[in-house]
Every structure is written in structure tokens, then in C-alpha cells.
Design a protein around this nucleic acid. Sequence first.
DNA 1: CCATGCAATGTTATAGTGTAACATCCGCGA
DNA 2: TCGCGGATGTTACACTATAACATTGCATGG
Lengths: 149, 149
Amino acid sequence: MAEALEAAERLCARRGARLTEIRRRVLELVWRSHQPVGAYTILERLGRERGRVAPPTVYRALDFLIAHGLVHRIASLNAYIGCAHPDRDHIGQFLVCSGCGSAAELDDRRIDRAIRSGAEAAGFAVERPVIELAGRCPNCRERGRDART
Amino acid sequence: MAEALEAAERLCARRGARLTEIRRRVLELVWRSHQPVGAYTILERLGRERGRVAPPTVYRALDFLIAHGLVHRIASLNAYIGCAHPDRDHIGQFLVCSGCGSAAELDDRRIDRAIRSGAEAAGFAVERPVIELAGRCPNCRERGRDART
DNA sequence: CCATGCAATGTTATAGTGTAACATCCGCGA
DNA sequence: TCGCGGATGTTACACTATAACATTGCATGG
Ligand SMILES: [Zn+2]
Ligand SMILES: [Zn+2]
Ligand SMILES: [Zn+2]
Ligand SMILES: [Zn+2]
């Protein structure tokens, strides 16, 4: 996580983007959670440090982080997660565990190729794929733990 | 669309599920829209016919329709769309056009295989994939029309 | 130094999406 | 008839996100 922060610093410096205090703090909070985290959870945690914080503050920071690929949004959860490889220009593919709530990022070229060629066969040009695979992570799978869903 | 309604009737009859007046009406409204449609849009349209209708009425109908595969939810749009092949046991893969707002369902085995094998390689068992590909449909692509995004 | 312009943030209010909880109705079988 | 379970009605609320406008703060050229 510390390295994620450093990577973010470097990346922003290189691009001339300003990783301000708030943006940096939001990024930290996203990383600190080991699961995808909701905007209002961030809001609340940020509020503990800085007194009252309003939703736009958090959403603007998230917008910035997402625009720079430092954070991904997981639409099926309305939640946000840090990206471990913001340098690579990539789309996210997510493995979302319904047992423990964790999410891992996958970056499988074959999946990317399959969706692009499948879509192309239908005459469709993919721009922003949303790939979010709900299921069971290795841990939860092994332990046959009760689902949270 | 009429045939979608009939298919729904048959499917529910076969399963002993009750396609009640409201559920049927919601299904019609979903199909009548040629784009993915939001729950509150359905709510409003349903309200025109039946006087005041509250959100749970619509959400319950949608839950039923989704459970029986008659309707899919598109998470990245918070919207719902009718399924043309409710018989086939399938997951949905969607091509969502950011130009005209339309959405087409794709059912590409190769995509399904690619995601399952990719996830499996990470020890992850996929249960409910969410595949929503935002991009340009053939029409909008050709006409270089202005994006809505 | 000051003007001034632009990006970032603060602030208030509101829009949009979805559910909990409990009441009521209605058809069907014991 | 009585009771039961599924469907619907009703109210209230939780959660997610954005619009609109005010303010701050910093860089940059005059
Ligand atoms: Zn990533
Ligand atoms: Zn798990
Ligand atoms: Zn379908
Ligand atoms: Zn289009």
C-alpha cells in the first residue's frame, strides 16, 4: 500500500496532475480497506479526521483518482478499489467474492481479446468494458464458509 | 415483443410461477422501451395506468422477472432490459451503446469460457458474471454521431 | 506587489436508486 | 369455515450521486 501511494505520487508528478492532500487521503483510505469500499464509508472515515466533509468532496476525489487509473469503480457493488498497476493502460477485470467480500483484479489478455472479438463480430466497438465476476475466492471456496449473499 | 410475452407466459406456466397482472405489465413496459429502462421510469409509467404505485411494487415485480430470467439488470446503468431467450439458461453479456443508449444482448460461449478459465486459473469460481461492454453500436459507429457521454 | 484567472474545495440542497417493515388482501386446501 | 402462504399496498427510510453556487488558494503575467 505504501508503494501504491508512492506510485501514485510518481504517476501524478509525471502527468502534472495534482495529488492534493484530500485526494491522497482518499486514496489511502481506499487502500486501507481490504475490500471494495463505498463512497459514504470513505466519507465517514475522512470526516473523523477533518470534521464535517460533504459528499462532493469524496466524489470529486474519487473522480480524479479514477480518471488517472489509480482507483477502479465496481459498478455491481457501488464501491471503489485501489488499482495496483495504474501505470499499465488497462481495463479492470474483477473477481468479487460473495463469501468474504474481497475483490481481486485480474488482467487477462485472453478475456480482453474474447470480448473485443465477440463484440466486433456484432459490429460493436468496445470502449469501456465492465467485467465483474461474482463468485467464490480460493479461501471461501475451500472452507465452504456461509455466503454473505 | 408480443412473442416475448407469450414466451414468458409459457415459461411461467411450465414452472408453476405466477405471472400476475402487475408482473406482466412491468414486463411489457420493459420491452416497450427499446433501451434499458430505469425502475423509476417503469414506476412512473405504471402509475399512469394504475394511479399511485410505490417503489416496492416495481422492484418486487423486477425481482420476480429477474429470478425467472425474463429480465436482466444492467448494473452499470442501474437499468433493466428484457431477455429474448429466457429459456436458455444463460448469463447475460451486454453491448451498451453510449451513442444511442441502446443495449444488445450477446451470448458468446468463447467469452464465457475465457472468463471462467481465467478466473479458475486464479482459483476463483465464477457464479454470476457481470459483462457489460460500453462502446459504439454499428449505427452510431457509422454515423460518427455525437456521443451522449 | 497586485490583478486576475483557473483549479480545488466548501456548502447547501436535491436527485436518483433501492429496501425494511408491517398491513392487507385473496385464493386455496385442511 | 379457518388458516396459511403468496402477492400487493403503504409508509418510511437508507444509500448513492450530482447540481449549483460560493469561497479559497495558488500561479502567472503586468
Ligand atoms: Zn487496475
Ligand atoms: Zn472470499
Ligand atoms: Zn438473456
Ligand atoms: Zn448506438
